[in-house]
Design a protein around this nucleic acid. Structure first.
Length: 428
RNA sequence: GUGGGCGUAGUUCAGUUGGUAGAGCCCUGGAUUGUGAUUCCAGUUGUCGUGGGUUCGAGUCCCAUCGUCCACCCCA
């Protein structure tokens, strides 16, 4: 036997036991998206490397060491997308979708980052994102947050997640604040840990978010961003809070909430949980008005979020008592004897043609009736349909309910048709 | 990139101071020659992650390597 080939580290198979959960979550998201008037957009998984460098920021960890970058045959540098917003903005500009008009869009799909895998973090991971273009006010910020809150509700996630909010201000006030912060930390340089000294160069705002206990004291006395917020951003933020309050959405203001990606400004938010180990953020987003001109478009407002599918599903699996119901077959057709085996495929196909919504599994491969019944039961079928020599001779089919106490019946084909129809209409 | 835990059947795991590799579940067949989910009986399943070393003898001890999980960094 030759060597087994394994999947790549951090890139997992979603097996049927798991895909039930994925389908359930995705069905809810799709329903919500259309309920709020968002349309799906599907940009490619690969883009020019330059796109991510320009949008995410040259000096971020993602761009510096986590991207799957390779050279195409013609020498272009290409990259597997590490996040969804950049490609989405590129597509929207290229397609002319935000030329003098607004758009509400959503996307889903795999993202790639070369990081060490751990709980809730993988090299190929799935994000679901929503982006709104051309809306400058806090109403749309509120709408996006409400969509996520609505999603948790539909998924039965009534506790364990909290909403954190912050404002990063406009670029000018953020730059001013950044200067003050750098000055503050430089005056306490000796007290900083190694990570914080490094962040002082790369992303000083991140120091505020340090997990190191040693940093708690020094961070407490650091200048507060809220004191440096420009009037417009302050007003925007206050109105967002009022909207959320009127909708009964609880939130916490977290002045240390900073986004890793360069393009954010004004509103930022995160949904966090303490039930997933080190990966507490299941959904994060914010406003990025500056990104579109950065990618060559005309000045335009933009706001969006992304949620991590694996993290959300992990959390749901810890919270829900039972997995969502699988779409088990309505009927399982058992075949016994040569005559039945010869006709089985055609009979099953005819039933599916007549009843398009019927979920019918055909027993393939023969075996004893007993073992065929076992299969029917294990697949979760509502009824077993029995076709043997007797049935072929009398042009009937045996109909045995497996989930309720009812006698087995011998039915003609037209009786079978109406029984199956009842079964289909009987669900939900 | 850094640190720690763990690798034994499809799966969950046991395996004594080093002495011929086990159990539950799953699966297959039978008890019932055409009736599942309960019960009883029988049966299949292994490069003990891989390579090397110590030893009369290694799943067990040592070294290396790979994989995996968790954490740091960073992020959804």
């Amino acid at each position: 036997m030759s060597q087994k080939i394994q999947a790549i580290r951090g890139m997992n198979d979603i097996l049927p036991e798991q895909s039930i959960w994925w389908q359930w979550v995705e069905e809810n998201i799709i329903a919500l998206a259309s309920a709020y008037g968002y349309q799906e957009i599907r940009p490619p998984v690969v883009e020019k490397t330059e796109l991510f460098k320009r949008s995410i920021g040259e000096v971020t960890d993602i761009v510096e060491k986590e991207m799957y970058t390779f050279e195409d045959r013609n020498g272009d540098s290409l990259t597997l997308r590490p996040e969804g917003t950049a490609g989405c903005v590129r597509a929207v500009l290229e397609g002319g979708l935000i030329h003098n008009q607004s758009q509400r869009l959503w996307y889903r799909g795999p993202m790639f980052r070369h990081e060490r895998p751990q709980q809730g973090r993988y090299r190929q991971f799935y994000q679901l994102g929503m982006e709104a273009f051309g809306f400058a006010g806090p109403d749309i910020d509120a709408e996006l947050i409400l969509i996520t809150a609505n999603l948790w509700q539909r998924l039965g996630l009534t506790s364990g997640v909290t909403l954190q909010l912050n404002s990063l201000g406009d670029p000018e006030s953020r730059a001013r604040y950044r200067e003050q912060l750098v000055a503050y930390y430089q005056s306490h340089h000796a007290a900083l840990d190694d990570d914080s000294r490094r962040r002082l160069e790369s992303n000083p705002l991140r120091i505020l978010d340090s997990k190191n206990r040693q940093m708690v004291e020094i961070n407490r006395n650091a200048p507060q961003f809220f004191d440096h917020l420009d009037h417009g951003s302050r007003e925007h933020f206050d109105q967002l809070c009022r909207h959320l309050e009127r909708c009964g959405i609880a939130y916490e203001i977290n002045p240390r909430l900073v986004r890793g990606l360069d393009y954010y400004s004004k509103t930022v938010f995160e949904w966090v949980t303490d039930r997933l180990g080190a990966q507490g953020t299941i959904c994060a987003g914010g406003r990025y008005d500056g990104l579109i001109p950065q990618l060559g478009g005309r000045e335009s407002a933009a706001v969006g979020f992304a949620l991590g599918m694996e993290r959300l599903i992990l959390l749901l699996q810890q919270t829900e008592e039972a997995p969502p119901l699988a779409r088990s077959p309505h009927a399982y057709l058992l075949l016994l004897g040569d005559a039945a085996q010869q006709q089985g495929v055609a009979i099953a196909e005819k039933l599916r043609q007549q009843l398009p919504r019927l979920r019918l599994t055909l027993h393939c491969g023969g075996g004893s009736l007993k073992s065929q019944f076992k299969q029917a039961d294990r697949r979760g079928a509502e009824v077993a349909l029995i076709l043997g020599d007797d049935e072929v001779a009398s042009a009937t089919i045996g109909f045995k309910p497996l989930r309720e106490r009812r006698e087995q019946q011998q039915l003609t084909m037209s009786q079978l048709h109406s029984q199956l129809q009842q079964l289909i209409e009987g669900e939900k």
